[in-house]
Amino acid sequence: MELTVVRGDITEQQVDAVVNAANRAMRGGAGVDGAIHRAGGPAVLQDAIRRFPDGLATGDAGWTTAGDLPAQWVIHVVGPNHNRGETDRSLLESCYRRALEVADELGARTVAFPLISAGAYGWPFEDAVACAVDTLRATPTEVDEARLVAFDQRAYDALRAYAGL
């Protein structure tokens, strides 16, 4: 699998699947979650309600339609909320691993990832970067390209430097 880093808007990525950093309820929210729901339109929320009436557990992943997004699927993951005491790094690692497992189930070959839990959930930035790169590189998958999408220059520079790109 090729690991790439781009700076941009995850909702505009031309990939098979985009990963959404969702909350447990999977009903939309702030940050990446809100952006994906706004850009994908009501079909994303309707599919999430139908497929996941009780939401998802922290560290788990599930998919819905991508609605109006250029991708075919949204793979929703629930990252740990460091600000609320969820500091077990294995939960963050699980988000990346589970997203790749779901991508493999779907047959997705290109997947765009945000930096999970690094925003409103307050995961320490440097560790969020290391966890993303290390976990994606260590996880066996049929995905051809895992694309880390950095929303700002700081994340872009940090991801590229850590990944050695």
Rank of each mutant, 00 (worst) to 15 (best):
A71C: 14
A71T: 13
Q72P: 01
W73T: 02
W73A: 09
W73L: 07
I75Q: 03
I75N: 08
H76K: 12
V77I: 14
V77K: 04
V77A: 10
V77T: 12
V77N: 05
V78K: 05
P80M: 06
N81I: 11
N81W: 09
N81S: 15
H82V: 04
N83S: 14
R84W: 14
R84C: 09
G85E: 11
G85N: 11
T87L: 10
D88W: 09
D88S: 04
D88G: 03
R89H: 08
S90N: 01
S90A: 06
L91D: 01
L91H: 09
L91T: 04
L91P: 01
L91Q: 14
L92N: 12
L92T: 02
E93M: 01
E93L: 00
S94D: 13
S94C: 11
C95E: 03
Y96S: 06
Y96M: 05
R97H: 09
R97V: 02
R97Y: 08
R98K: 14
A99G: 00
A99H: 01
E101P: 00
E101Y: 14
V102M: 07
A103L: 10
A103Q: 04
D104Q: 05
E105F: 08
E105S: 07
L106E: 01
L106T: 03
L106N: 02
A108G: 12
A108I: 10
A108S: 13
R109M: 10
R109A: 12
R109W: 03
T110C: 05
V111T: 03
V111Y: 01
A112H: 08
A112D: 04
A112K: 02
